[in-house]
Each structure stands twice: as C-alpha cells, then as structure tokens.
Write a protein that binds this DNA or RNA. Structure first.
Lengths: 165, 165
DNA sequence: CGAATGTGGTTGCACTTTGCAACCACGAGG
DNA sequence: CCTCGTGGTTGCAAAGTGCAACCACATTCG
C-alpha cells in the first residue's frame, strides 16, 4: 500500500522533520504564522489553498506541537509554540539560500529585514564550537547512541531507519 | 485539474524552494550528497526509495542545478553544484532544530560534528547586519521591487503570487 | 564462450494524496 | 426570519507515490 513514507523512527535529524513539514503547505503555514497570521481565514486567503487541506495541516501542526490553538472570541487562533518559533533559523537559512540562488538579481522579492534598521540580516555562518567558520567539507556525521557520547566511526551517511526487519 | 501547486513565480523566497525540495525525498538526496554519496545505487540503497522515484528526483535536481552529473568510468556520478552546496546552512539549521525538538534527550541520533575536533557545531545565531542577535519579533518582511530598494511598507505577509488574475 | 550477476535505469499498475467544489453548522446583522 | 461571513467537513477526479517487473549494458565467473 503505497503511502508517503514516514521517517518517524529515523535517527537522522534531517529526515524526521519531513513528516511534519514535508508536504509543501505546512512550511508556508509556519512562515505565515511568523508573519503574524493567526486565523483560519487569514491563512486560507493568503495561501490560496483549499480549506480541507488547510484544516488538515493546521490540525497536524497542532498535533506535532508547532502550533497551538488559542480561544479568541467566537473563533480560535493558531499561534506558534516555542517549538514552532524554533524554526526561525531554518526559515532564515532557506530565505537566504533562495534569494541568492533562485531569484534573478533584479527580480522582485520579499525580504526579511531588521525591524529597527530596516537592513537585511547578516548572512548566516556555520561555526564550530570554538567559533571557527566551517564548510560542508569540514564536518562529518557521527552516531550518538542512546544516552552515550559521540562515537568516532566515520559514518558516511545516515541509515534510513524507516524499515525494521 | 488538481496538481501539486507550484510556487514558481512566488515573490517569497520561502515558497520557491518548495518546488524543488518540497517532495520529501529531494532534501534527503541532498543530505546524502553532502554525506559523500554519489552513485545512483548508493542513494537507492541508503534511502530505500523506489528507483523510478530516485531517477525522477535526481533528474529534477540536476535540471534545477543543485546536482550535476559527472562521468565516472562506465557510469555517472551525481555531485553537488555550488548552488547545491549553498544549502548547507539550511541543513544545519534543520538538524539543530530537529535535535532539540524532535528527539528525546537520550534518544539515539546521528549528529554533525566538526571534523577536526569532533565536537558538535555551534548553535546557529540570527544576526542583524550590525551583528546584533535578532529573534522572530525583531524582524519584518518588506517587498523589494524589480531592481529597486526595499520599501518600508509594513507588509505583514507575503502574497501567494501563484495565481495571476 | 555463455550464463549469472550488478548497475542504472524505464514502464505498468495500485493505491494515496491533493485540490476544487459543494455542503454544513453556527453566530451576527438586518 | 432570512441572509451573510466564518470555520470547517464531506465528495469525487486528477496528480503524485511506491512496489514490482522489465530492459540494456557491462562485468564476473564457470
């Protein structure tokens, strides 16, 4: 029965979020939530998606703890939780990559800027624990077992742990 | 005709990458490419996905310029382009969020570490142009028109520009 | 040399998901 | 009382996803 493969038990932190955010709408809902949208109708109008889909996504995001419902008058609002707000760096990283590689230099785009100065944010930098900047080739993947310390075992790639034989 | 809605012409840099990376496998392929995988069979074995899907995703990623094919002996390899390598901060951001919010504290996980010291990377920080750390509430979205300067128009949310009336 | 095996796919088909539209419950307005 | 706006929940038809089977080509092995 072919359904969208789940990465629920994956040991790789890159795979697991895809169950929540990997459907193409959830991430945009989160973006809009960062932009201050709260009500069902606001999301629906801004994203232009079908109401059934939006309903399902909002419920899923609430179930996963990224949003929480807050009663507000006769309706309810969907607001980011701490967990949801934690996605801010991901949003910014994606924005910066996208602006650099997916837009023509003179193409119209929306941009995130510092509210105080109105200037674009600084470019994200990946740094080691000691503050030294690192690139993709300066890092490697290790496996941290249950409660243990990192093991230096030169793991090249994560095993996709979504099938247990 | 219901098809997966495209964000090709969206002005929002968060929406546009979803056309390439929003399918649940492409992002994992990119992750594996960062981990050094290059060959069709390597991706297929590691991800455990159907070969037709992998084939389609690899071709799409090549078409979008994230991967390029390199002849190597009798077969060809898929390696990250500059554009693809640019996704590194996104990967790291997602990893860090995921480790913090999607895993139990003592749960086994793979982790990215500094190759030299073996220590985990520093936590990503979002900073303004002057180096001051900023959070979600310290930023706002502006619209940058074609070739122009940012406009201070208090845009709350990006318009989903995938329908031109 | 010929058969088995591995690599890198494409093709078929079943099942799921997506998305449009229509419908529904409820409160507010007139 | 009737209508309208909000916040949804059903119904389908068309894409998308995934399994398995098949194919072309190269390498290995008896």
């Amino acid at each position: 029965m072919p359904r969208r493969t789940s990465h629920e038990g994956a040991t790789c932190p890159v795979a697991r979020p895809l169950d929540v955010l990997g459907d193409g709408w959830s991430f945009l809902i989160i973006r809009d939530a960062f932009d201050g949208l709260r009500r069902f109708g606001e999301f629906q109008k801004n994203l232009g998606l079908a109401k059934n889909i939006l309903s399902a996504r909002l419920h899923a995001l609430v179930a996963h703890g990224l949003l929480e419902t807050v009663p507000a008058g006769s309706y309810q609002e969907y607001v980011l939780t701490e967990k949801g707000r934690g996605l801010f760096p991901v949003l910014v990283a994606l924005r910066q990559w996208s602006e650099e590689h997916l837009f023509e230099p003179d193409e119209a785009r929306s941009r995130i800027v510092d509210k105080e100065t109105g200037r674009p944010l600084a470019k994200l930098e990946i740094r080691a624990a000691d503050g030294r900047p690192v690139g993709p080739n300066d890092t490697k993947i290790t496996l941290v077992p249950n409660g243990g310390d990192p093991v230096d075992n030169d793991v090249l790639a994560d095993v996709s742990a979504n099938k247990q034989p």
